[in-house]
Write a protein that binds this DNA or RNA. Structure first.
Length: 689
DNA sequence: GGTTACAGGGGTTACGGT
């Protein structure tokens, strides 16, 4: 017996709220009152069907679009993505009532829909056979897929649903069939902006270079994929005033500051409803988006191509998707576009730099300061000396002799065989020579002067041992940062010419994921005992790439992964012996001392303590801690590079790297590896010189 | 009643505005 006997429209509305037990009304799904991931059963009338297509998996996919009483007057519907074997696919017609059980609510491309796999059951009632209520629709049930059986409650509800719902949104049989047939046609409409032409429809992957602007019933934005199209408006800049974000004022468009790419690289897109609202709420400056089926046409001035996104009759679907820069399943076409963007940014930096140089030469009458780019170019010429030298036979012989001497000296040092340096053939530079200030003689207005250069770019090989490290805990050797656009390109190397100023806003902008990187420093001491007392120690930075090379390990969350920490500790033990142990003892001694002082206890009978955070530096106790534990590690051969970084400098007299910036000399370790076996060696080619 | 993740398109296309 049915619990209700609907006999007319008014009766239906009173009972429609009570779907058969276990069914969910579609408005609750679309409003996310039913959470994503929940398994639901729904009933609705079919208004669209996309025929099955093969997927990259083992199944086919079809899409059925339905609506029910809860949304009959709304401009929305519910799509159901069905993944199944081809012969197990439901094949509904226009207006058929579909009953689906055990489908899952999902959010796909920012839209709520259902996903149905083989655990779902489908039942299709043929529209033309459904009797008017109160008759049961049982005999109209045309096909069933799946295990679930329907009961009399469902059959009765189907009759009511079908006969008392507004059917205006269902296309007539011919239109429906035409769309079904068209759904099988799949052509790739993707096109880069440099190849788009007037009058066509395309799918594009673009970067939002000017944020969406709301104009009531429409939204406009500017996009670029960093290709050039002759029919785009040319954005140029005059004047190089840069704001704090590195964007540029343009002389032409003074009312709205253009920060997007210059040249003919950008296109305006106008979105009409319903896309306008979606774009307005979801799309932001700098995001990468995909726009599907965008109409390209000439704008009012008949000169520039632009895009329009219209409401499409007969299909309602989202056409603008915000793309994520997640490395692994990132669209290769997006990757290419990001690569083009980075190349463009690099070019822009280069042009800005040369423009700025020209300007400052004009302004200052070409008077140079140490540290400016001309000076650096001269240094680099100076550095090219050795490669020319190699062509000179006499000097070559001298070099070989030095090498020979180095080899003998190294044999006496008893170098650590676990540590391999990639440029073993290069001459050895003692630490005091590497660390000494760099002088440069030149003539200024006829007079010879000696300048102290802030740094030079140079590479050395040296023999050292590790005497200290920072940060204090190995757990902090790996740190994380938020991922940037360039992370999506695993093989992209950033512009080394640009130094470390990192001004480019797009490169530092986050896409949300944590990227773990190595970052630590080592204090190195020259391996030659005869050099003691001279400036034979210096700190070197070990960056992510070089630490990977050094340890053979990728950075990770060491606090959350004791195994990784253990492996790192073992590797570094090979490099620095008992250094960590010594530092730990030293730290514990400090803590004990502090407690003793706090407790007003007398000092132990040891000699006076020198409060030194690092190891004792006094000559007699060098490399020995207060507990008498001696640093025990072997020297090794490694590569060192010297370079400069810009730091903030409020004092204008010290600011030798442009306004508010000062050059600081930095040393970095490179080309050095901790091996698991003693015999392991680098390939013969050298990166020095 | 149940837990596994995965796969993912259409247009003889369109209007609208600075």
């Amino acid at each position: 017996m049915a619990p209700y006997q609907p006999s007319g429209s008014s009766k239906f509305t009173s009972t429609a709220k009570e779907l058969p037990f276990g069914y969910t009304s579609i408005d609750n799904i679309l409003a996310e009152i039913v959470p994503v991931g929940r398994s639901v059963s729904v009933m609705g009338l079919v208004k669209d069907y996309q025929v099955p297509i093969p997927t990259n998996g083992s199944h086919h996919k079809c899409t059925i679009t339905i609506y029910d009483k809860s949304i009959e007057y709304e401009q929305v519907d519910l799509a159901i993505s069905v993944f199944r074997q081809l012969d197990d696919m439901p094949r509904p017609m226009a207006g058929d009532v579909l009953v689906i059980t055990s489908a899952k609510v999902q959010s796909y491309r920012e839209n709520i829909s259902l996903i149905a796999n083989k655990s779902a059951s489908f039942h299709i009632y043929s529209a033309s056979d459904i009797p008017r209520p109160p008759h049961s629709a049982k005999d109209a049930l045309r096909s069933s897929h799946g295990t679930r059986q329907l009961g009399e409650k469902e059959h009765e509800y189907v009759s009511c649903l079908y006969h008392f719902i507004n059917k205006e949104s269902i296309p007539d049989v011919a239109t429906f069939q035409k769309k079904v047939d068209q759904s099988g046609h799949r052509k790739d409409k993707f096109c880069k902006l440099d190849n788009i032409v007037d009058g066509n429809y395309y799918d594009v992957i673009v970067n939002v270079v000017k944020a969406p602007f709301d104009e009531m019933d429409k939204t406009t934005l500017w996009v670029s994929d960093y290709t050039e199209n002759d029919s785009f408006h040319k954005f140029s800049w005059d004047g190089v005033k840069q704001d704090s974000h590195g964007s540029l004022d343009t002389g032409i468009h003074t009312t709205t500051k253009w920060t997007g790419p210059f040249g003919k690289r950008s296109m305006q897109v106008t979105c009409f409803e319903p896309h306008a609202s979606h774009v307005k709420s979801e799309v932001q400056l700098d995001q990468w988006i995909r726009i599907r089926n965008i109409k390209i046409k000439f704008g009012k001035n008949a000169l520039n191509l632009e895009g329009a996104l219209h409401e499409t009759r007969g299909f309602s679907r989202q056409q603008v998707d915000v793309l994520k820069l997640d490395g692994k399943d990132c669209d290769p076409r997006l990757k290419e576009a990001v690569r083009r963007k980075l190349e463009y940014e690099k070019l822009k930096r280069k042009q800005l730099k040369s423009f700025a140089e020209n300007e400052s030469e004009k302004d200052t009458g070409a008077k140079r300061k140490a540290g400016d780019s001309e000076e650096l170019k001269m240094n680099s010429k100076k550095r090219q000396g050795p490669s020319k030298m190699r062509r000179n036979q006499t000097r070559e012989a001298a070099r070989m002799k030095v090498e020979e001497q180095d080899k003998h000296a190294e044999e006496r040092l008893g170098l650590n065989e676990f540590i391999k340096c990639e440029s073993e053939g290069q001459p050895v530079t003692p630490v005091p020579s590497i660390a000494e200030p760099v002088l440069y003689k030149t003539t200024v207005e006829g007079e010879e002067v000696t300048l102290t250069l802030p740094f030079v770019c140079a590479k050395y090989r040296t023999n050292v041992r590790v005497v200290d490290f920072h940060p204090r805990e190995l757990e902090s050797f790996a740190t994380w940062r938020k991922s940037t656009e360039s992370d999506v390109l695993s093989d992209y190397s950033s512009d080394s010419d640009s130094g470390s100023d990192g001004d480019d806003s797009s490169l530092v902008r986050s896409s949300g994921n944590k990227i773990w990187e190595w970052r630590f420093t080592l204090q190195l001491e020259d391996a030659d005992p005869n050099l003691k007392g001279e400036k034979d120690r210096f700190w070197v930075v070990v960056d992510n790439i070089e630490a990977q090379q050094l340890t053979g390990l990728d950075a990770s969350d060491l606090r959350g992964d004791p195994d990784a920490l253990h492996v790192l500790r073992e590797q570094l033990f090979k490099l620095w012996g008992n250094l960590e142990e010594m530092k730990l003892q030293e730290q514990q001694r400090h803590i004990a001392n502090r407690r003793r002082v706090a407790a007003k206890q007398p000092p132990p009978s040891s000699p006076a303590n020198v409060d030194n955070e690092h190891l004792q530096e006094t000559s007699g106790k060098r490399n020995k801690n207060q507990n008498g534990l001696k640093l025990s590690n072997k020297p090794f051969s490694c590569c060192i590079r010297q370079y400069g970084v810009k730091l903030r400098e409020p004092d204008p007299h010290k600011a030798n790297a442009g306004e508010g910036r000062r050059w600081v000399r930095v040393f970095g370790l490179f080309g050095t590896r901790i091996c698991n076996e003693r015999s392991h060696s680098f390939p013969p080619e050298s990166v020095l010189g």
